[in-house]
Each structure stands twice: as C-alpha cells, then as structure tokens.
C-alpha cells in the first residue's frame, strides 16, 4: 500500500513534466509579442523591449526557457509576470475560490446525481424513470450561459422580490458557503446528468446480480438489500467518475466564475491567456495537473476500500 503510493507519486513526475512542457510549448507558439501587449497600441521603447526580452529569456530557444521555468518550480518559484508581480501573489486566494466552487459542485452533483439515479433505477420503466431521463437530456442540452443567468434571475432575484427569501447570493464570495450554491449548481449541471445515468445503469446492473438474489433469499428487508448489499457494489464506477470530475470542474469553471463574479483561477486563466502572461498560464495549468493527479490517486486508493478484491502491492 505504502509502496504503491510512492510508486504512483513517482509516476506523477513525468506526467507533470510532460503536461507542463506541452502547455509551455503551446503558449510559446501563441502569436503576438507579450512585451508589445504591455503597451497596447503605443510604440515600445526598443531599449525597454531588449531589457525585458533579456530578463525573461524570451530570445532563448524553447527548451532552454522551459529549463529555466522548471528550475524555478522546483525551488517553489512560479516566476514573475511581465508586469512585475510574482505569480504566487496572483494565485493568492484564487485557487481557494475555485476549489470551493468545484467542491460545492461536486457535493451537489453527488447528492442530486446519485439520488436521481437511484430513484430512476428503482422505478425502472415507470413515469419517474422516464421523467428523470428526460431531465438529464435537458441538463446536457442547456449551456452554462443560459442556466447561469436563468438561475441568477429566478432563485437569486425573483425569489427574493416575491417571497423575501434571500438565500442565494448572485455574485461574489462575501456570504461564505452560500455564495457557492448557485454557481456550484450551474457548474455541476452536465455532470449531474452524467452521474444520474451512470448511477442508474450501475445500480440496475447490481440489482440483477446473484448476490442480491441471495440477500433476498436470506430474508433481508428490502431497505437492507438495496442500501447495503446492492449500493456498496454500485458505488465503484461512481467514485471513479466523481474523482475524475473534480479536475474537470476546476478547469471548466471559467464561464461560471465570470457569470457569478467569482475571483477564481478560471477567470485568471482566461485573462492571462488574453494578456499573454505566459508564466501565469503555465503556473495555473501546473497546479491543476497536480490536483488532477492527486484526485486520481485518491480514487484508486478508494477502490481498495470499496472492493476487497483489489489489492495494491
């Protein structure tokens, strides 16, 4: 078990190097001069330009620039922006906001998705099942832009003006965990649909298993047959999906963060690509990759907890 974790962490190193190099190369290949971008439409003083290019190693080959970058990373230094701000300062608080948002989305997704999936599986072929399946189709079809603004308007504004219930803040992070309710719901949207369908399929398959029949033959109450014997076995694919989804939710929050005015890394990433702040872009991606690797490792370790047939040596 311990050796397995160490091995997985060592495997993470080439993954991290590969992904950061790819993103570094992509940013390098972007058209436009980042120094010119600092000045907008005005002309840039040639001496200033030469100094800046020298300082940020912009005239070195790609691989050398990447070498400087990796060197920095291993000493905990994410580098400076062209505007002279340390990248770590820009990150301050922003990863926390996005992580909160992604975790809120994950919780909503798990509760709603698994819940709906269970109902659908137990009412297979009945009206509730059909309605839930239709609802998941609707969820995947509505773009975040639409669902975001509609929820903001209905739950955030109209609910308050018509009933006086002021529970769903529409922007910012000043209301603690409640601030993340609406954006979390919007971000979770499509994932809820996938998880619902996955839960439904997984549970339906488990319910056909011989050991469920055994549990019934043992005279176990229905609640116990479902909640203990079937559910535990259905959870395995769901945990995989949820784990992989954490990374996807964190990197996919750009639009949601913009609609709900959350100061997270999604927006920062977008802005930085726009301003050619290469060091910020690569830094964000590096951290996201780390989170992705960590989430997958946790999922793999959870397998062994859920299914005793899996052993790590």
């Amino acid at each position: 078990m311990g050796r397995y974790v160490v091995r997985r962490l060592l495997q993470a190193i080439p993954v991290l190097l590969g992904t950061t190099f790819l993103i570094f190369a992509l940013v390098y290949a972007l058209p436009g001069d980042p120094i010119q971008a600092l000045a907008g439409d005005r002309a840039v003083d040639p001496i200033f330009r030469a100094t800046m290019r020298e300082m940020f190693h912009l005239d070195d080959p790609l691989i050398v620039q990447y070498g400087y970058y990796v060197q920095g990373i291993f000493t905990g230094d994410f580098g400076m922006t062209f505007r002279g701000v340390p990248v770590s300062t820009i990150f301050e608080g922003k990863f926390q906001v996005t992580l909160n948002l992604a975790l809120m989305a994950l919780v909503i997704e798990a509760i709603v998705g698994v819940g709906l999936g269970l109902i659908a599986a137990l009412r297979r072929g009945k009206a509730a099942d059909t309605a839930i399946l239709a609802f998941t189709l609707l969820l995947v079809s509505v773009p975040t832009l639409v669902s975001g603004f509609v929820l903001q308007l209905v739950l955030g504004v109209q609910l308050k003006t018509s009933t006086g219930i002021d529970f769903f803040p529409v922007a910012g992070t000043s209301e603690g965990w409640r601030s993340y309710l609406l954006p979390g719901l919007v971000l979770a949207g499509t994932s809820i649909a996938y998880l619902t369908r996955l839960t439904r399929t997984s549970l339906m398959e488990t319910l056909r298993a011989d050991y469920v029949r055994t549990a019934i033959a043992k005279g176990m109450p229905r609640r116990r047959v479902l909640g203990r014997h079937a559910l535990r076995n259905s959870l395995i694919p769901l945990v995989t999906y949820l784990g992989a989804d954490l990374g996807a939710l964190m990197s996919g929050a750009v639009i949601t963060e913009t609609i709900f005015n959350l100061n997270g890394i999604g927006r920062q990433l977008f802005d930085s690509v726009y301003l050619s702040e290469n060091s910020v872009v690569v830094g964000i991606v590096t951290v996201l990759v780390l989170i992705f690797i960590a989430a997958n490792l946790i999922v793999d370790l959870l397998y062994a907890v859920l299914d005793p047939r899996i052993r790590y040596e």
Partner: peptide, 19 residues
C-alpha cells in the same frame, strides 16, 4: 425466507457478496 425456508445457489462465487 431465510428463517423457515432457505436456499443454496449454484455458483457460490457470484451468489456471495464480493465486498
């Protein structure tokens, strides 16, 4: 079921809960 009438199945590997 289970108390007065009990049943044994053909394939014990799939009839027992793996987890």
């Amino acid at each position: 079921r289970g108390q007065q009438i009990a049943m044994i199945f053909q394939d014990a590997l799939s009839a027992l809960n793996p987890v």
